[in-house]
Design a binder for these strands. Structure first.
Lengths: 188, 188
DNA sequence: CGCTTGTGGAAGTGTAGAGTTCCATTCTGG
DNA sequence: CCAGAATGGAACTCTACACTTCCACAAGCG
């Protein structure tokens, strides 16, 4: 991601495809306030733009997670920070996780090796399980997917206008931690 | 849905699009073991097939839910039956919920009126909240979406081979009911 | 046996959108 | 102010896919 124009194109692509998967290149160009010709100069093939958008989105999400310091403090608190951090990069998440073919087709091609990319969220979950904070009857991978899934669902609600944006973190956190069942003596 | 051929086409469409959104009509025709010409005779326009597929998928899911008798017995038990029932119609669910544009564009066109279609799952959740079984700090709509989201996530895992099909109901149920946190004195 | 109906293969047309080419314009650094 | 780079408008080509047409074949049925 070198200059301003390229950055504008990639972020416009993420933003546009997040809300309208299947948007055409002219639409992306318009969203980026850039000519169609310019877009094609930077990304001769549609696939290149898709790849760049996925990579940038993953970078943004990764940075947000890192900033939440998932490896510090009580796992529950760390998880809450992570969820709050995700809320600030909702577009990137809606984009990458809104179409499983992206993660399935693009990411493998990008890096054909790398045994396990050392996911900090998985680390956090494992740590929480080891400390007896997270359910160790569930696999860490499942918990991670539930985290993504519930977060994504919340973003959908926000996009649809069914939920306020600032409620996301609280709702997701509460749902993750306690499920949907009522608890014994908890009013709030 | 009149005859055998039409049924074959619609179910093939659901099955194919569930695993490969963006499959072309020739692919659907092949999956249905039917000539491309025949497909076009039954559904002159692609949109008609999409609509028929969505409607049939919703019917199938609705029937499965009804069979689980969500309005009977303890809400927690009823919810478990519903989740188990959903597991048996995973393809229909992966299809309809794998592309939000389907629910957004197709369903409204199908029935331009109907204030609220009386969703039995929402009823179940409300009943559970009234009986103090489900968290009434969360909206029924949110709980419903979490139910769909977690179920969908589980199906994705199964499709990817990361989870055994017969584990779905148990895992989804446990996650929904307790969240991802460890509980006080619960070994299983 | 011939009529009707359902089927499907083959070879079309039409269109949307990706990718290209060319040239005029604007921006930027020296 | 000028040269080179970046930009973008316009008008292409090309390809995939939806949709159509026509004809042939097979099955059920009077």
């Amino acid at each position: 991601m070198k200059n301003r124009t390229e950055r504008a194109i990639v972020t416009a692509a993420i933003r546009t495809w997040a809300s309208e998967r299947g948007a055409t290149l002219p639409e992306i160009a318009e969203a980026a306030e850039v000519g169609r010709t310019t877009l094609h100069r930077y990304f001769p093939e549609r696939d290149g733009l898709v790849r760049a958008a996925v990579e940038h989105a993953l970078e943004v999400v990764g940075a947000a997670i890192a900033e939440a310091q998932p490896d510090t403090g009580h796992p529950l608190e760390a998880m809450r920070r992570v969820v709050a951090a995700l809320a600030s990069v909702s577009e990137a998440i809606m984009f990458v996780f809104g179409d499983q073919t992206l993660m399935r087709d693009v990411v493998p091609t990008a890096e054909p090796d790398l045994p396990t990319p050392h996911d900090p969220v998985i680390d956090l979950i494992r740590r929480g399980q080891a400390e007896g904070v997270f359910d160790d009857q569930l696999t860490a991978e499942w918990i991670q997917h539930v985290l993504w899934g519930v977060t994504y669902t919340a973003f959908e609600q926000v996009a649809k206008g069914s939920q306020a944006k600032f409620d996301v973190a609280a709702t997701v956190t509460r749902t993750l931690e306690r499920g949907i069942a009522a608890q014994a003596g908890e009013p709030t």
